[in-house]
Computed example of a mutant assay.
Amino acid sequence: MHKIAQLEVYYFELRFGYGDGAACVEWAVDRLTLDEEGNDLEIVLLVSARGRDEVLPIVEIIVERYVGNNALDDHLAAGKHIGRLRNAYLQGKETVHSIDAALTRLYPKLGYPTWLVMLSRNCEYATDIPAFEEPFEQEFDYISKLWESVSTRAEFEQRYRPEISQQHDAKPIS
């Protein structure tokens, strides 16, 4: 399926409250316009869906069909989102403040996972305390690269080392 990765991004955003589903509908319209739907009924149904409650279940079926049920894992989707945020941060499209807002939204929705503790903390502190900017960037680099290198949550959990995250802390002033 063409541009399914883009639908995955929209799906994540929709699940985490970042939109109303209009981007998903536009994606489906593009597939129909370019005759790329391959007679997929859900894509046809998605074109006429309106609002989050109608769009979400249809998109979930499409994503699961073309990407697999790993794409439905909230942690994996959030980890991939963090990778996109870091790329945008490096390009100057995101700031510490905008990343903090995103993490503040993600952290509780994911149930306060251990892998997100240091990143969330350092980001929040970096918004006001310059000494936390470097530790934030170190942890952001570590977490985003780990998520970008895996295709499942289980892979991430095998590779994640809390002791590395603990090293990404502000140094005492001497």
Rank of each mutant, 00 (worst) to 15 (best):
G51A: 02
R86E: 08
V9C: 01
S120K: 10
I129M: 14
G21R: 09
E60V: 05
A102E: 15
I61L: 07
F16D: 03
R105H: 12
E8K: 15
I173F: 08
S98L: 02
I164K: 11
A5E: 15
F16W: 04
A78M: 07
P162G: 02
A154F: 11
D30I: 09
P57K: 00
N39T: 13
G92Y: 10
R86A: 06
H75T: 01
H81M: 14
Y66L: 02
Y160I: 10
E157S: 09
R50D: 08
D141T: 08
G68I: 01
L119E: 00
V47K: 09
S151F: 14
D53E: 14
Y11N: 08
F140N: 01
Y125L: 14
A101C: 09
P108W: 11
E139V: 02
E60R: 10
S144G: 01
F12W: 13
E134R: 13
H97F: 10
V67A: 09
L146T: 03
T114I: 05
F156P: 06
S144R: 06
P135L: 02
S149N: 02
H75E: 11
Q167Y: 05
R161L: 09
A22E: 13
W115D: 01
A102S: 14
V59P: 03
L32A: 06
T95H: 09
S151W: 10
K80M: 11
A170I: 04
D20I: 04
V55T: 08
E157N: 10
G21H: 10
V55A: 06
L90N: 12
P172G: 03
R105K: 15
N87K: 14
V25Y: 10
L46A: 04
Q6H: 11
S144A: 12
V96F: 06
L103D: 09
H75R: 11
Y125Q: 12
P172R: 03
F136V: 02
P108Y: 14
R121V: 02
P130R: 15
G17K: 03
H75L: 07
L76K: 01
A170Q: 12
L45Q: 15
R84T: 11
F132N: 14
E64S: 04
K109T: 08
G38F: 13
I4L: 12
L110Y: 06
S120D: 06
S174L: 05
N70K: 04
D169V: 15
Q158A: 13
K80E: 11
D20T: 12
Y125A: 13
K109F: 09
G19R: 12
K3V: 03
P172L: 06
S165G: 09
W27I: 02
R161W: 02
D53G: 07
I143R: 00
Y18V: 07
I129Q: 15
G92E: 08
C24V: 07
Y11H: 15
Y125W: 13
E42C: 09
D40K: 03
N87D: 13
A5T: 12
E37V: 01
A49Y: 06
E37W: 03
E124S: 14
E42L: 10
N39V: 12
A126S: 15
Y10D: 13
V117W: 04
L56F: 07
W115M: 05
